[in-house]
C-alpha cells in the first residue's frame, strides 16, 4: 500500500508540474500554427510569475492574479507581434529580445516587491491565496488513477483548455483560417482571410498563455517571492514541447506531463543510493531528454515529411 501512495504522490506531482509546461506549450502551438515563433516564453513567464503573485497577494484573489498575468504578458507580446507581423523583422531576434527583457524586469520587480512593497503581513497571506490540490471524493481515493482526481483547479482547467484549443484549431472555421495562414499566407490572403489580424490574435493570446503559465508556477507550485530567476529554462522546454507535439494541442498533453514527471523524478532519484554522488547532474535530466526527444522528432519529421507549419518564421508581405 505504501508503494501505491508513493506512485500516487509522484503522479500528482508530475501532473501539477506538467501543467506549467502545458499552458505555455498551448500558447506557443497557437502562435506557431499562425506562422509566428515566439522565443520570448521564458521571459513572459517570469513576468507572469511576478504579476500573478503580487496581484494575488494584494487582492487576496488568485484568479485576479492569473487574469492580470495573462493580460500583462499579452500586452508585452504586442511588441513581438508588431515587430514580426507589421514590420516583418527577424522573429528569432525579436523573441530573444522579449526573453531577455522579460527576464530582467520580471525578476527586478519581484525582488523590489519583496524588499519594498511586501511586509510580513502580506507574505503571511501566501498560504491563503495559493492553489491546493482538491481531492474529488471517492474517485480521488482510488489507487494510482486517484491521482487524476486529486489536482488543483487550474490543472483541470488546462486540460479543458487543450481540448478547446484542439477543437478550435481543427474543427472550426477560424482554426482552419489560422492554420492556413501559417501554411500559406499568400493563398489565405487571396481567399480573403485577414492574415495580419489572425497572426496578431494568435501571438497575443499565445503570449498571454505564457504569462498564465508563470503565474500558475508561482501560485500552484512554488510560491516563493525572490529576486532570482524562477522559471529556470521551463519556457524553453515548452518551446521544445511544441515540436514534440507536432503542433497538436492534444499531443501537447503527453509531452507536458512527461516533462512534469521528469522534473519531479529528481526528488525521488536523489534519495537513491547510486545517484548520491551525482545529485546536481540529475537536475539536467529533463534537458538531456529534451535534446534526445528533439532529435528523434526531427528525424521522424524528415522521414514522414511532416513538420512545422510551412510559413513558420517567415514574415508575410503583400509585395
Amino acid at each position: 500500500m505504501v508503494e501505491l501512495t508513493m506512485i500516487n504522490q509522484f503522479l500528482i506531482g508530475a501532473l501539477t508540474v506538467g501543467t506549467i509546461y502545458l499552458i505555455a506549450t498551448l500558447g506557443e502551438v497557437l502562435a506557431e500554427r499562425s506562422g509566428i515563433v515566439n522565443l520570448g516564453l521564458e521571459g513572459l513567464m517570469e513576468v507572469g510569475a511576478t504579476v500573478g503573485i503580487i496581484v494575488a497577494i494584494f487582492t487576496e484573489n488568485p484568479w485576479l492574479g492569473f487574469l492580470t498575468a495573462f493580460i500583462t504578458a499579452a500586452i508585452i507580446s504586442v511588441i513581438h507581434a508588431f515587430a514580426c507581423i507589421t514590420l516583418k523583422l527577424n522573429q528569432f531576434a525579436s523573441g530573444l529580445a522579449l526573453y531577455i527583457f522579460g527576464l530582467g524586469i520580471g525578476i527586478t520587480f519581484r525582488g523590489y516587491a519583496r524588499d519594498v512593497m511586501l511586509g510580513p503581513k502580506e507574505l503571511m497571506k501566501i498560504p491563503k491565496i495559493r492553489l491546493y490540490p482538491v481531492k474529488i471524493p471517492l474517485l480521488g481515493d482510488l489507487p494510482v488513477i486517484g491521482a487524476l482526481f486529486s489536482l488543483n483547479v487550474m490543472a483541470y482547467f488546462a486540460v479543458i483548455l487543450s481540448i478547446v484549443f484542439w477543437f478550435i484549431l481543427f474543427r472550426t472555421r477560424i482554426g482552419l483560417d489560422i492554420r492556413s495562414v501559417g501554411e500559406n499566407p499568400a493563398a489565405a490572403d487571396a481567399a480573403g482571410i485577414n492574415v495580419f489580424r489572425l497572426r496578431y490574435i494568435a501571438v497575443i493570446i499565445g503570449g498571454g498563455m505564457a504569462g498564465l503559465s508563470g503565474a500558475y508556477l508561482m501560485l500552484a507550485h512554488t510560491p516563493q517571492i525572490m529576486g532570482a530567476p524562477i522559471i529556470l529554462g521551463r519556457g524553453w522546454i515548452a518551446i521544445a514541447l511544441v515540436i514534440f507535439s507536432f503542433w497538436n494541442p492534444l499531443r501537447a498533453l503527453l509531452g507536458a506531463y512527461l516533462f512534469g514527471g521528469l522534473e519531479i523524478a529528481y526528488f525521488w532519484l536523489q534519495g537513491i543510493e547510486i545517484f548520491k554522488g551525482v545529485i546536481p547532474l540529475l537536475k539536467a535530466v529533463p534537458h538531456v531528454s529534451a535534446i534526445i526527444l528533439l532529435t528523434i522528432m526531427s528525424i521522424e519529421a524528415l522521414r514522414r515529411r511532416i513538420g512545422a507549419p510551412e510559413a513558420l518564421g517567415k514574415p508575410y508581405s503583400r509585395e
Binding site: G43, I79, F82, A83, L87, L89, N90, A93, S94, L96, A97, L98, Y99, I100, F101, G102, L103, G104, I105, I107, T108, R110, G111, Y112, D115, V116, G227
Partner: peptide
C-alpha cells in the same frame, strides 16, 4: 536596493529597440 537584474531589463529593452 534595486536588483542587479535591472541591467538585464535594460539590455532587453535595448535589444527590443534594436530589433525594431
Amino acid at each position: 536596493k534595486i536588483s542587479r537584474f535591472i541591467a538585464v531589463g535594460f539590455e532587453g529593452l535595448i535589444f527590443i529597440l534594436l530589433v525594431l
